[in-house]
């Protein structure tokens, strides 16, 4: 249960920063301010027990929800970012990577797991927002690619859980081409008649939305997630007025025809498993 301890530690830090509740044993919902214990919150799949607010969670949290008995093996876990352009802004990219790896305990913004979902094999790729805003660089693209390869090898579905601010600017052209690369890999998956489910969570924007996140055989999302191509601030600047209520929310995107359904995290595993079963190609 080491992942569980780590998760609790994460929440501790968050609460210490807010300096509202001591010792991190408590979770306060940012939406309705309801207070519950961190353990209760985690047991409730990190939803507010009062208003159902879906807290942002990590790839390991999602794996614990989806994979049977939380059993999975990681794919391409060893990949870390190079510094292909020797990029420096206010900080050298190389140092930024090192610091982020040490601080977050993550290797990059995507983790890929292989395991069973309700007894059926599946590859799940899941983004971690805690790694430079879930931004897509070469490592995200390559792990995604190897995840697809694994699904083809195992003849099983591929699921990607998106949570990203978009491209990783410090990899510039390389980052842009990961949009092309991930889309190219999905054509290979499609050639094998294997289902691809794109699961969009809060937030999914930019180059991720404009590539693999919108290419699911079915696109599904968590409630009230921010989903868009341009960020809300940019859109607001473009049109020069305030955005309508609920603009770019999951519900808005569903209404405009780009999502198949919205699913509460509590029903995610069951509904996803059913969708996968419904799509499984007849041999």
């Amino acid at each position: 249960m080491s992942w569980f301890k780590r998760m609790k530690k994460g929440i501790t830090t968050q609460n210490q920063e807010k300096k509202e509740i001591p010792e991190g044993l408590w979770y306060q919902c940012p939406e309705c301010k309801h207070v519950m214990t961190s353990d209760q919150h985690a047991e409730n799949d990190w939803l507010c027990e009062k208003c159902d607010y879906h807290e942002k969670i990590t790839s390991l949290n999602y794996f614990s929800i989806l994979f049977d008995e939380n059993q999975f093996s990681e794919v391409a876990a060893h990949l870390i970012s190079g510094d292909p352009l020797e990029f420096t802004d206010t900080k050298a990219y190389k140092d930024r990577i090192k610091t982020t790896i040490n601080k977050s305990g993550l290797k990059d913004a995507l983790r890929v797991g292989f395991g069973n979902i309700e007894g059926e094999k599946a590859v799940v790729a899941c983004m971690d927002f805690g790694f430079i805003g879930g931004s897509m660089g070469s490592v995200v693209g390559e792990k995604f690619a190897r995840g697809v390869d694994k699904a083809i090898e195992e003849n099983c579905p591929f699921i990607c859980i998106s949570k990203s601010g978009g491209a990783r600017m410090m990899e510039a052209g390389f980052s842009l081409m990961q949009m092309a690369k991930t889309s190219a890999k999905l054509t290979q998956l499609a050639d094998h008649q294997l289902p691809y489910v794109s699961f969009l969570t809060d937030p999914t924007t930019g180059g991720v939305t404009a590539s693999f996140a919108m290419l699911g055989d079915i696109n599904i999302a968590e409630p009230k997630a921010l989903i868009g191509f341009a960020g809300p601030r940019v859109v607001k600047e473009t049109i020069g007025k305030d955005l309508p209520e609920g603009f770019q929310s999951s519900e808005f995107v569903l209404e405009h025809g780009f999502l198949d359904y919205i699913v509460n995290r509590k029903e995610l595993k069951q509904k996803l498993a059913l969708s996968l079963k419904q799509m499984k190609a007849k041999s």
Partner: peptide, 26 residues
């Protein structure tokens, strides 16, 4: 850049670009 407007978002700017990437490959 692709237009970052309100209607562009409503009509799925992200999906439109993504679809082209996928289909142009083939």
């Amino acid at each position: 850049g692709a237009f970052p407007g309100l209607e562009a978002e409503e009509r799925g700017q992200g999906e439109a670009i993504a679809r082209n990437l996928f289909e142009m490959m083939r």
